[in-house]
């Protein structure tokens, strides 16, 4: 499902101009990371994708649907949005019910709900915690429950707002695994992140934002190579990328494999 954003402007009621002319197309099945300093407009931008915010000017289309013409509850069948703080959405008595809430809202039949819930729980490694109350789980696992509760909605587009913040390495790997699986299934994933290593290792396309505008948009290696421009939005490329640059590699590298290959040449 294609995302088309045309000349999007958004001003908050307080008068803050959060987006100033964003044009962007994300093809079906693409995996995109959005980086940039705090207040760059990343969250404001993704909140337009499921109609939580509506453009002050410009247009957002999700698979041909203009977001101003459909209610959020309807757009939820196309765009899943995992909020940053899981505690702002968990309310059920147990994990299973929590994860079933979304697909039930979308009106799927009982059989499909069960299949989707099971799939989401397996994918997030929560299958053994179905009966647990989400509030008895640690913060890391609650984050996985929130993730599962959106995965189970089987939307073509998924938005993750800072999925790795405050997570240990094991859980970051779990989240990376989920994203890799979603890529295989042809889902579009848009992730906001400050975790530049996570971004470098899991995404093929990176968008850097600053002050409500897109600064850079392109292949991960190309974007991470533009150290000076990234610095203006307080993003440091990964250490290996910077080291590669210092060593005078011709191409930008972003992970160990690329680094070692470049070193061997």
């Amino acid at each position: 499902m294609k995302i088309e954003i045309k000349d999007l402007y958004f001003t908050y009621p307080t008068g803050v101009e959060a987006l100033r002319g964003i044009s962007l197309t994300v093809e079906s099945g693409e995996q995109v990371a959005i980086v940039g300093q705090n207040g760059a407009g990343k969250t404001t931008l993704v909140k337009h994708l499921n109609g939580l915010l509506l453009p002050t000017r410009g247009q957002v289309k999700i698979g041909g649907w203009d977001t101003t013409k459909y209610p959020v509850a309807k757009l939820a069948s196309r765009v899943g949005y995992v909020f940053q703080n899981p505690d702002e959405q968990l309310f059920s008595r147990n994990v299973g019910m929590e994860v079933a809430f979304g697909p039930k809202n979308l009106g799927f039949d009982a059989e499909r709900v069960e299949a989707l819930v099971n799939d989401a729980l397996v994918l997030t490694q929560l299958a053994d915690k179905t009966e647990t109350n989400p509030y008895d789980l640690s913060a890391t696992w609650r984050k996985m429950v929130a993730l599962a509760s959106i995965l189970s909605m089987d939307t073509d587009i998924l938005i993750f707002d800072e999925p790795t913040t405050g997570q240990d390495a094991v859980n970051v790997a779990r989240i990376a695994h989920v994203i890799a699986e979603l890529r295989k299934r042809g889902k579009t994933v848009i992730t906001i992140t400050h975790d530049i290593d996570f971004c470098a290792e899991n995404f093929e396309r990176v968008i850097a934002m600053s002050q409500g505008k897109i600064l850079l948009d392109g292949r991960t290696n190309d974007v991470l190579g533009r150290e000076e421009i990234l610095a203006s939005t307080y993003v440091d490329p990964p250490q290996l990328t910077r080291l590669g640059k210092r060593l005078g590699f011709k191409n930008t590298v972003r992970n160990q494999e690329e680094f070692l290959n470049a070193l061997k040449k």
Partner: peptide
């Protein structure tokens, strides 16, 4: 502010708050 965020999060999960 918190209530506003929660409403947004649940609407994103298909909760109908408008009908």
């Amino acid at each position: 502010a918190k209530a506003q965020t929660i409403i947004s999060a649940q609407r994103s999960r298909g909760l109908d708050t408008q009908s």
